[in-house]
Simulated assay, not measured.
Amino acid sequence: MAVAIDKVAWVRIENGKVLCARSRGKDTCYLPGGKREEGESDVQTLVREIREELDVDLVPETVELLGVYEAQAHGRAEGTVVRMTCYTGDHEGTPTASAEVEEVLWLTHTDRDRVSPATRLVFDDLKAAGKLL
């Protein structure tokens, strides 16, 4: 599988639900995060993207790798693959929609059809691990 999109994402689970975001004008939800800028580490990218999207500060020393997921990129040509490197970590502040984010949602596995293909893989793993309702 050729990877066309390389992304980092934050996985925040509370009370059996995972934090997701929905971009303005879109109907599909995704895990917050984004693409690296030149010279950025995964953690630097994650801290910047989460600040931009959700107006919260990740605590860098608490960020831990959850896993790497690859799937068809949502809304892209068939064969376009996204590799999403997922991290957990603590934050300061209350997640709030900002920048390109229209809505912040807490989703369960029953909401699986509302998220991107790569996010579905994360949901499935979290459900199997007993972390997601």
Rank of each mutant, 00 (worst) to 15 (best):
V59F: 00
D111N: 13
D57C: 02
V63S: 08
V104M: 02
L31S: 07
L107C: 08
L58N: 06
S116I: 11
L133M: 11
Y87D: 08
D113H: 14
D57Y: 01
Y87P: 00
T96N: 01
V59C: 02
I13M: 06
V115N: 01
N15T: 09
K127T: 09
M1D: 15
W106N: 05
H91T: 05
V104R: 03
V68K: 08
S98L: 00
R51W: 09
S41Y: 06
P117W: 08
T80Y: 04
T62D: 05
S41M: 08
W106L: 12
G16A: 07
G67P: 00
V43K: 11
A97Q: 05
I5A: 10
H91E: 07
D6E: 15
A73S: 14
C29V: 10
E52A: 00
G79V: 13
E102G: 15
R114M: 11
L126I: 07
V43Q: 12
L58R: 06
V82A: 13
S98N: 06
G16L: 07
T80K: 11
G16N: 01
P117H: 12
T110E: 15
E53Y: 02
E103L: 02
G39N: 11
L46I: 07
H74Q: 13
A97I: 12
G33C: 10
G93R: 02
E37F: 02
E78C: 08
G89D: 03
D42V: 06
N15Q: 12
L54C: 13
Y30H: 15
D125K: 12
V43M: 06
E14D: 09
L58M: 11
L54I: 04
V82W: 05
P95V: 01
A128M: 08
P60I: 05
T62A: 01
